[in-house]
Each structure stands twice: as C-alpha cells, then as structure tokens.
Amino acid sequence: MTLTLEIIGISVLWMFLFGYVIVASIDFGAGFFNAYNTLTRREHILTNIIQRYLSPVWEVTNVFLVFFFVGVIGFFPKTAFYYGTTLLVPASIAIILLALRGSYYAFATYGTNGHKGYTFMYGITGLFIPASLSTVLTISEGGFISMVKGNPVLDYWELFSSPLTWSIVVLSLVAVLYISAVFLTWYANKAGDHSATELLRKYALIWAIPTMITASGIIFELRGHNPEHYARILDLWWVFGISFLMFVGTVWLIWKRKNYGLAFGLLAAQFALAFFGYGVSHYPYLLYPYLTIYDSFTNEAMAIALIVAFIAGLGLLLPSLYLLLRLFLFNKDYVRGNKDNHA
C-alpha cells in the first residue's frame, strides 16, 4: 500500500468517521442514560452533567457525519451510484431520526423547560440511529447487493436474516453506551459531582464486557461471511491485540477509580486502533466485491483540490475547535456550573 491520492482520501474520511463515532456515541449514550434515569426517577443525578456537556456542542456532532458523506461523494463519486441507490431506506430512516433528535434537542433546551416525552424520544432515537447507520457497514461486507439490469439492488430479507447484521447492530449499541459512560464518568468527575460519577462508572463497567464480546463475535461471523476480509483481519492481529490491551487498561483504571482522563484516552486509542484496523483490512474495497477505492476514485484534479481545501479548512477548524473545548469542556467554572452565560 503506497501513499496514493486514494489512500490519502480514504484516510481523511475514515478519520472523520472515527470522530463522528466518538462524539456521536457520547451524545447518543448520554441521551439514553438520561432517559433511563428519568424512567427510574433518578434524573436529578445525571441531567445537569449531560446538559452542560451537550448544549454547546450538539450542532458540531452532526457536522462530522455531513463531512463524511459529502467527502465520500467528492473523493469516490461512484459510491453515489452503488450506495445512493441501495441505501435509500436505511439512510432515510437515519436522517429522519437525526432530524427529530437534533431539532427537538434545540426545542427542549432553548425553548421550553423539558418534557418527559421528549426525553424518552431523545433516548430511544439515540439507539436507533447507530443501529440504522451500522447496517451500512454490514452491507459493505458484500452479499446483500446484487446487480439487476445494471442497477444495484439491496436484498432486505438477506440483510435482516443475517446474523452478521444483528451482531453489528448490537455492537454499535453496546459500544455507544460504553464510550458514552466512560467519557461522562470523566466529565462528571471533573465537575466534582460525586454521585453522577459513581453512577456513570457503574454503567461503564457494565457495558465494557459486552463490547468486547460482540466485537470478537463479529470477527468470528466474518469468517463465514467474508473469508477474504477475515484473512486480512488476522494479518493485522497485532493491531487488534494492542487495542485489546488498551481496553484492559481503561477497565482497570475505571475499576480502581483512578485517572478517568487517562481511561478515556485509552478508550479513544482502543477504538481508533480497532476502527483503523478494520478499515485497513477492508482495503481496497468500499463495497465487496463491486467497488474498490481505486475504480471509484475521482479524477486527479478534483482529488488535489479537495485535499488542498481540506488542509486549509483544517487550519481554520482546529483552532476553533480548540477554543470551543477550552471554553466549555476544559473550563472549570463552566463544567462545574458556576457560570451560565446563555443568551
């Protein structure tokens, strides 16, 4: 694998998708925990922490996803033909849920003083969105799309009766809850909110083991479904090995109530390694067996223009993101709720 424009393009996009997976998981999980605690009448413990974190950043989360799919069409226009045609239903459902979730978040936060029905909807959509988005990963493994009269057609029965589909759905749900719990444990601890920290720590530990079990289960499923991909995963065993060690590190730190910040760092590294390990082993296919990053790639002029735009854009974004994090995420007064300067 040499560093071609194709590789640069897919790496950039994969990075942003990883960013989305992390920030969106925190958001989705937070919504679920909040709803669950409202249901069990313990909302007072978590609501504050979750509101403080989500309010200034909710809009930013969405952009990561938009960035990814706009970038995919830019770098790999042929994906529009294959995925655009076949993903109509799952992607539309995901958009509708995202739309309801995003706008009602704003409605409830800025407009009114919370409503229980809304809280539950926020919690539930947070689980359905990763579930529907994760089916795209399943479809990319091949075996669900056939070509009929030159057009790709998705076989829904095949998709929904496959154990691979459901293991990936379960993994997405479990991972969302795990990532979110670990992050919020750290955040609650920074805010000095002891009871919230303890509750979230418990959630983090509960969801840790299922995350590992389902992730391993998927690798096992792939052996039957897509042997080529499975073999490439085994070639990269060391990446997944290191990722596992990071996982152990996170769980140990949380168990011992030590350094939650480092625990979240290890978690991010664990998921980054697994995510990139998965991505690299998927190479060169975007969609088994029809589409590789090479035959779907855009022309050279566009690729270079996009990469230049990307670097320039990053030069603008990184300082702004840093400012956002410094003002809210890493600002003691804000995190602890000493200051509220909302318009």
């Binding site: 706009v70 970038g71 069409i73 830019g74 226009p77 855009t298 566009m302 996009l306 854009g313 974004l317």
Partner: peptide, 17 residues
C-alpha cells in the same frame, strides 16, 4: 451525483467547512 461528484464536489466539500 456520480457525475457531479467528479466536477463540482469542491464547493460541496467547502460548504461543510
């Protein structure tokens, strides 16, 4: 979009920024 992606993806991409 397959055709447009080849030629006019740049402003779409910049819009996200």
């Amino acid at each position: 979009m397959e055709l447009a992606g080849n030629v006019i993806a740049l402003p779409l991409f910049m819009e996200t920024f």
